[in-house]
Nucleic acid binder design. Structure first.
Lengths: 240, 240
DNA sequence: TGTACATCAGTGAACGCGCGTTCACTGATGTAC
DNA sequence: TGTACATCAGTGAACGCGCGTTCACTGATGTAC
């Protein structure tokens, strides 16, 4: 990131931020596929063609919003991960809570990245890395315990694993978490899916007339899930 | 449903079906929020105003599509539920598999009902009952076992349950599954969330470069989830 | 410090397009007697 | 069975609107000497 030196550069950085802020408001009001450059320009008191000095097309702006959303969520998760925690289990719960809190605070941006894809819009490669940050943060406490052997023996039976799945899980582990056995990787992925499944159901209205507000259900299920992952509830790392 | 008697009534029923079929194709091409009455009419070789003989507005057509999607998914799940199965566990797995199969076969309709809500569109009350059918089908094998005491003792620790959650779960149980204890209800709801979480992640592209194709991961996770629900793997009901 | 030139942000008009919905109408189908 | 009338499906034109994107332009900011 180059240092901002001239007034022109400062103005450009500020206006870029204002454009994205206005676009985020649009997003909340009408949704991703109806995000309109003209409406954004109108809100900023500019003429619509002026936006083309900042983004080459509507899709480019949409991409910037997606990357920002992944980054904001990733930052929230990483902040929770870095905070002091009584145990690996508590740390994992804190990350999951932070993910949910971000989603509730930014429902339209959550929908942008975890809702139905916008037909006709193809997310470019630049979105992949930011998208992985949150997954990494949720994985980190599990990896730390697996690395020093403090992951509790996994409760419950372990189904036989077909070769196809083992190969997929090995590839994931090799890329991001070499400490994990295939079964732990599978449980971690399933826990990750459950965390986002609950948040999506809550935000998209599937829990209406059921467990909405979902705070207690979320915590209860998360607690059971942490046990199934074998995350220890004592601070094993503090004693070293 | 009134019997169709006249040629006019037959034509109307046929054209209604054709309109919905064309609208479903639109949905797949451009998504729910960009569904266009004019495009539907164009595909049918009609003039756009003619559609107003069938649906009073764009939103009315969208509602019909949503209800149809819930009903189609509900039917698929109920069919799997009614099929012969070796055990309650197998029956539950069959229902979950049927849900996923329907989603994969009809991704745009799945996105319509389980994806991000369309901003500005408020689903009317008529969608509630059809939406519950699939949840009922997935719940049925658990209820049957709970009713005759064949649900296995639940493995794993049970977190303490706050009163707020207990009240919510009691209300759900009272309405749809009085056989279930609060903890079983919570586990059933969490399993339900996990099933849809996995399908959404698969269809919305979150498993790309991971466990995609997700067949093996889905079955593996489902198998472990069935165990956590205590669903017996023998046909306890056949012996009675 | 001052001047001449280059860069860049924002304007305003325009292009070509698609949308939902209304309305008066024509002509075919159905019904009552 | 035949006729007169009512119902309804579909037409075509129109209203008023918003959209993304291009383009020649003005005027302010920045840079080199």
């Amino acid at each position: 990131m180059a240092a901002i030196r001239t007034a022109r550069e400062r103005a450009r950085a500020e206006l870029t931020a204002e454009i994205k802020a206005a676009a985020r408001r649009q997003l909340a009001a009408v949704g991703a596929s109806e995000l309109s450059l003209r409406a954004v320009a109108r809100e900023l008191g500019m003429v619509s063609s002026a936006l083309y000095r900042y983004y080459g097309s509507r899709d480019e702006l949409l991409t910037a919003l997606i990357i920002d959303a992944y980054d904001a969520l990733g930052t929230a998760a990483e902040t929770a991960l870095a905070a002091p925690a009584a145990s690996p289990r508590a740390r994992w719960l804190a990350v999951a809570d932070a993910i949910r809190a971000w989603g509730r605070a930014n429902p339209s941006e959550y929908a942008l990245i975890y809702g139905s894809p916008v037909p006709g819009y193809q997310a470019p490669r630049d979105t992949i890395d930011p998208a992985l940050r949150v997954a990494f943060a949720l994985l980190a406490p599990i990896r730390a315990c697996a690395a020093d052997g403090t992951l509790a023996p996994l409760p419950g039976p372990t189904p036989t694993m077909p070769d196809e799945l083992r190969a997929q899980l090995d590839a994931i582990a090799a890329a991001v978490a070499p400490e994990l056995t295939p079964d732990v990787t599978a449980r971690a992925l399933s826990a990750y899916t459950l965390v986002f499944g609950m948040i999506s159901f809550e935000l998209f209205g599937q829990y209406t007339n059921g467990v909405d507000p979902a705070d207690a259900f979320f915590e209860y299920t998360l607690s059971r899930t942490a046990d199934l992952l074998g995350l220890p509830d004592v601070d094993v790392h503090a004693s070293s």
